[in-house]
C-alpha cells in the first residue's frame, strides 16, 4: 500500500456510484446488525406485533402472591404492594456484593424500550412494550466469580404486602433461576416500566425479570434478591410440579405440557389461535445456548 496517489490506475478507482452503493450497503448492514439486537425487529414469524393494550396487560395477570385468578392481582396488588422504598440485594459468588436502592438502579442503568412477545405456559400470549435494561449490566457490576454458574432470583416475602402468601398454593417466596449464560444473554432484561410508565404493581413492580424465549413464569416479579451460585437453584413451579415445569422451560411447541398442547397459543384479544414458535420466535438469537441438549428431556 506504499503507492503514491498518482500511481493508481484509473481502472482501480472505485466509481463514485459503486462507492455510494457500498456506503448504502454498509449502512444497511449496520441497520441489520443493530436490528439483530433490537428484539422487536428480530423476532421470526410473528403474525402481528402490535402491542397488547395496556388495559389487557394490567388486567390479566398470573401473580399468585395476590390470588390465583387473572383479575385479583390488578385489584389487590396496587392496594398492598409498596414499590418504594425497595432494595435489591446482589450477592453470592461475586467480588462486589451490593444492596441497590431501586431509585439508584433506575438512575444507574438507563432504561430502553423493548417490545417482547410473552408466551404463558397456559397457552395464551401477549406483546409487551417493556422498559428496562439488560440483566447483564447489573451482574457485571457485581463481578461474578469464575465459580458462578447460575443466577438465583427471589421475590419479596411479606404476607402483609402480598396477602396471597397466606395461602399455601405455592411454597413462598417465589424463586426462579437461570444458567449464567442465559442470564448474560442480551435479550434477558430487568424491566422497571411498561408502556413508558413505572411498572404497575400487578406486573411485578418495581423490578422484574423478562426472559422472552421462556414461558412467562420464569420471568419472576418484584425481585428483592439476585444470587450468583454454583449449582442449579430451585425454582418454584418446578418444586410444585416437577413433571410439568422444568428448570429451562423454554417455549417449545414440540414438547407438550403433560396435560395440554403447546403447539398453538391465543394472543390476548384474538379470536383464533396461531402457531407457537420455537423459543417464542427468538430461536436465531438463543438456540445456540442449548446446543447438544435434548430439550424434550431438559424441558
Amino acid at each position: 500500500m506504499g503507492q503514491a496517489p498518482g500511481d493508481i490506475k484509473a481502472s482501480e478507482i472505485t466509481p463514485e456510484s459503486v462507492w455510494l452503493d457500498r456506503r448504502t450497503f454498509l449502512k444497511a448492514a449496520g441497520i441489520a446488525a443493530v436490528s439483530a439486537l433490537v428484539p422487536r425487529l428480530a423476532r421470526a414469524g410473528g403474525a402481528d406485533d402490535k402491542p397488547t393494550s395496556f388495559d389487557d396487560i394490567t388486567h390479566y395477570n398470573n401473580f399468585y402472591e395476590f390470588g390465583t385468578d387473572k383479575l385479583s392481582p390488578s385489584r389487590e396488588a396496587p392496594k398492598y404492594l409498596k414499590a418504594r422504598p425497595w432494595s435489591v440485594r446482589v450477592e453470592g459468588l461475586v467480588a462486589k456484593p451490593k444492596t441497590w436502592d431501586i431509585d439508584e438502579v433506575v438512575k444507574r442503568f438507563p432504561a430502553e424500550e423493548r417490545v417482547y412477545h410473552l408466551r404463558c405456559v397456559e397457552a395464551w400470549s401477549a406483546v409487551v412494550p417493556w422498559s428496562g435494561f439488560p440483566l447483564s449490566a447489573l451482574l457485571k457490576k457485581a463481578e461474578p466469580k469464575s465459580k458462578a454458574k447460575y443466577v438465583a432470583f427471589q421475590t419479596l416475602l411479606d404476607p402483609k404486602q402480598m396477602p396471597g402468601q397466606n395461602a399455601s398454593v405455592l411454597p413462598w417466596p417465589y424463586v426462579e433461576g437461570l444458567r449464567l449464560d442465559e442470564a448474560m444473554h442480551p435479550l434477558t432484561m430487568l424491566a422497571t416500566g411498561l408502556y413508558g410508565k413505572p411498572l404497575p404493581a400487578q406486573d411485578g413492580a418495581p423490578i422484574r425479570l423478562v426472559v422472552p424465549w421462556k414461558y412467562g413464569f420464569k420471568s419472576i416479579k418484584s425481585i428483592v434478591k439476585v444470587m450468583l451460585v454454583e449449582r442449579q437453584p430451585p425454582t418454584t413451579w418446578n418444586i410444585a410440579a416437577p413433571n410439568e415445569y422444568g428448570f429451562y422451560s423454554n417455549v417449545n411447541p414440540a414438547v407438550d405440557h403433560p396435560r395440554w398442547s403447546q403447539k398453538t397459543e391465543r394472543r390476548l384479544g384474538d379470536l383464533f389461535r396461531h402457531p407457537t414458535l420455537p423459543f417464542n420466535g427468538y430461536e436465531t438469537q438463543v438456540a445456540g445456548l442449548y446446543k447438544g441438549m435434548d430439550l424434550a428431556k431438559d424441558f
Binding site: D55, H59, R266
Partner: peptide, 14 residues
C-alpha cells in the same frame, strides 16, 4: 351482553 359491552376481559374466548 358482556360480549357486546366488551366486558369479557382480556381473553374473551377463554
Amino acid at each position: 351482553w358482556r360480549g357486546t359491552h366488551g366486558s369479557l376481559g382480556a381473553n374473551p374466548v377463554q
